[in-house]
Design a protein around this nucleic acid. Sequence first.
RNA 1: GCACUCGUAGCUCAGCUGGAUAGAGCACCCGCCUUCUAAGCGGGCGGUCUCAGGUUCGAAUCCUGACGGGUGUACCA
Length: 564
Amino acid sequence: MRLKEQLNRAIADAYAKAGIEATPISVNEAGKPEFGDYQYNGAMALAKQLKQAPREIAERIVASLDSPLIAKAEIAGPGFINLHLSDVALSAAAQEARSDERLGVALKHEPIVAVVDYSGPNMAKEMHVGHLRSTIIGDALANMLEFLGDEVIRQNHIGDWGTQFGMLIAYLEELGEAQTDSLRDLEAFYRAAKQRFDEDSAFADKAREYVVKIQSGDARCLALWRRVINISLGHCEEVYEKLGVSLTREDVRAESFYNEHLPEIVQTLKTQGVATESEGAQCVFFGEDEAPLIVQKADGGYLYATTDLAALWYRANVLHAKRISYVVDARQSQHFKQVFATARKAGLVGEDVLLEHIAFGTMTDKNGKPFKTREGGTVKLIDLLNEAIVRAKEAIKKSGEYDEAEIETIAKTIGIGAVKYADLSMRRDMNYVFDWEKMLSFEGNTALYMQYAYARIRSILRKYGKAPEGEIIVTDALEHRLLVQLLRFEDTLLEAAQKAMPSYITSYLYELATLFMKFYEHNPILKEGVDEKVRQSRLQLADLSAKTIKLGLGLLGIETVERL
RNA sequence: GCACUCGUAGCUCAGCUGGAUAGAGCACCCGCCUUCUAAGCGGGCGGUCUCAGGUUCGAAUCCUGACGGGUGUACCA
């Protein structure tokens, strides 16, 4: 239910009715339960304009306020309007939501094609913990947009093109082409190849020559290259599978895919005068103090920026995207700013296409330094995930009796859930220090808290065994708050999707689960002595809570289990 | 040098389309399992929201500056 939209409309109507000629501001969620559910703070700002006391203005607004959603509007302090929502209206909406697969969340009226570019691992190395953020934030964003009705095209812009591949295939050839087993540990393979490259100049020359050969389409080199890419992609898919990320091979649109378009991109930029030559390279300039965007090197080679421009053109003109979101580390802000500006200037994307860099902070080590692949201190992503599952297993064994299969499922669900939640629950623009304990914690505000709340509810519903029915009757303030929180789901989701902020969802879910836990402690459901109508009502509140938690976590890519 | 970003409780973080006594988790102290899962609930402790100005009826939130951390800054991706 779009609560804010409805309340804002009610306020706008009240303005019109009261003859107030001004654009109302938006209602806010109330800071404290005593202040109602929502508050409207627009009266104070009007005082000067209307030359009237703010409380009097508030009274005029309240007198004209007429909405079935609002049970009571009170004026407080200097002119706050505290809105108390109607339990009758909310109950009806909640019942509707409960019987709807989408929990009452409307599909967009005008869906668009939205491209989400995320994960983008380098094929020369294994994924490490630094790749976690792009992968799971991007996946969450894609899921949210898709759920809201957009046609989402996931794009995994893998790094499969560049100088390292000459080195890798030269080394693979040297080992003997049958030796693909040695690629199983890609990190070790990379290190060994690098060592050969650094120590033997003849080998280095061959590696460089192979780069050219791949790019010019030499069949044998291409075959070797494809072998490396395939195995490397297999590693990634293993991680995606374990992580529960929705990316598939269909979503891969590698750097090499754009290779053939690069010359025409540069040509276009040159023809339009967007790119000019400087020190032999083709550059796009922005300002005195700003380094240019180089689109073609002095030696004729193309760069990262060129590929991104080609990708942008492709996404806007072939895929017809109207929103293109790059989920990439904040360190590349300037790069994207320049690439977007260049694409616009050259008309590679239309004015009506939203280009956004969904920047996220860097994951660092304890010294505040970003993880580096070649420094040995890197944690492989697959190792983190496996460790999470092991620790989850230990925690499970302490707390209950499960059979073997159940242990596997539950450990994976809560272990992976913990890792993803630890990351998603923080604002994405924050840097943070990688910490095993934090990633693998099961206490407090973690995925497990929500998963536990979910399992508790499912247990009650299982025990009851039938579908609850009848009205939802609010018997106390706690139930009212739970009900309001449940109906705030759509507003939260809309904002999270619009701003690409998965942490809005985690905050929401934590609050919801907290309210449910309190409700659970204080308001018995199946116990003796509970009035039958109240029981039916509470069962429904519990049911919708479970469904909302499951859906919300699901959009974040976090699973639930029926029993914990 | 220039640009971007962050600076909130001992630690990790919410809150930042300006609003009423600034919220969680962890840690620490106390209480609650003979009835729906104690991975939980209740209570306590803990803050000059980095600092200084400004805008405003009202600033953790907006603007300017300083300080501190991180990052980027011409042919890597």
